[in-house]
């Protein structure tokens, strides 16, 4: 167990070392938020309705802010390291030592995310409380919902870890993977609700998204906090999150087993 605490600490130190980088990433969220703010202002003024595609103006702005920050928070990136390990044969280092690669990756990932979770949650807490104090919100952002949100987000991060961990096994079959990882990241940011709320896309697209885990990464946690989901909906959502984590865990075991049979330890 101690070696994995060490990996956790390494991830944590890594995040603290490159704190400026993460802050800059967060600051770069401002522009997309601004663009959407003006877009929605114009749409609401042009349309003259209080509701557009199921959202009132305040709700959509809260959604945009939360989605922009959350998608930066849940982002992975270790899949590139995994494929490097596979490509350069570094993976064999882990095979001959008494350390589990999976346990190592997940501890270091969680270590890296811990300070980021605290920072993003703090920012969101400040933004949301000041918004609900200064402007009248149609849906109350209650303290209970906020607490639930803080519980749900780490589960979302874990879920995204397992998606990336499954994806990272691609490098056993393909020599170069960066283009696939990058494109996957872009598409998953749409499918998880990182740009627009998923229910705006209409019934047909949502029927497809219901079969995928992505909506539980960004869309679901925001629905917890903005009051769109009733409490029993939240509970079944959390259940779905754990179900997906379990399914993806099994899938990753299978994929790694298949992948290891092909692993040749080049270079190493």
């Amino acid at each position: 167990m101690r070696k994995y605490t060490k990996a956790f600490t390494l991830g944590l130190q890594n995040a603290l070392e490159y704190r400026m980088n993460f802050l800059l990433i967060l600051i770069s969220c401002i522009f997309p938020i601004l663009i959407q703010y003006f877009l929605w202002t114009t749409i609401f003024v042009s349309k003259g309705d209080s509701e557009v595609l199921g959202y009132n103006f305040n709700q959509i702005i809260v959604y945009t802010i939360c989605a922009a920050l959350l998608s930066k928070l849940v982002a992975t990136g270790f899949e590139y390291e995994v494929s490097n390990d596979v490509k350069n044969g570094q993976l064999s280092k882990f095979l001959v030592q008494p350390i589990g690669y999976f346990q190592y990756r997940i501890s270091s990932f969680l270590g890296e995310k811990t300070p980021q979770i605290i920072v993003v949650m703090l920012i969101l807490f400040i933004i949301l409380t000041s918004l609900s104090l200064f402007i009248h919100m149609e849906t109350e952002i209650t303290l209970a919902r906020m607490l639930m949100f803080f519980l749900v987000v780490p589960i979302s991060i874990l879920l995204n870890f397992f998606i990336s961990y499954c994806l990272s096994t691609l490098s056993f079959w393909l020599l170069e993977v960066w283009g696939i990882y990058h494109t996957f990241g872009l598409l998953s940011s749409i499918a998880s609700g990182g740009i627009f709320p998923l229910d705006m896309f209409g019934a047909t697209i949502n029927r497809i998204l219901d079969f995928l885990p992505f909506k539980y990464i960004v869309f679901f946690p925001i629905n917890v906090i903005n009051g769109k989901l009733p409490w029993d909906g939240i509970m079944s959502g959390v259940l779905m999150q754990f179900t997906w984590i379990f399914v993806l865990f099994l899938l990753s075991k299978l994929l790694w087993y298949k992948g290891m049979q092909r692993f040749e330890s080049v270079g190493g």
Binding site: G179, I180, H182, T183, G185, L186, L187, I190, I195
Partner: peptide, 9 residues
């Protein structure tokens, strides 16, 4: 491929 992803966004 990556540019196609951006176009979808």
């Amino acid at each position: 491929l990556v540019e196609l992803g951006y176009i979808v966004i």
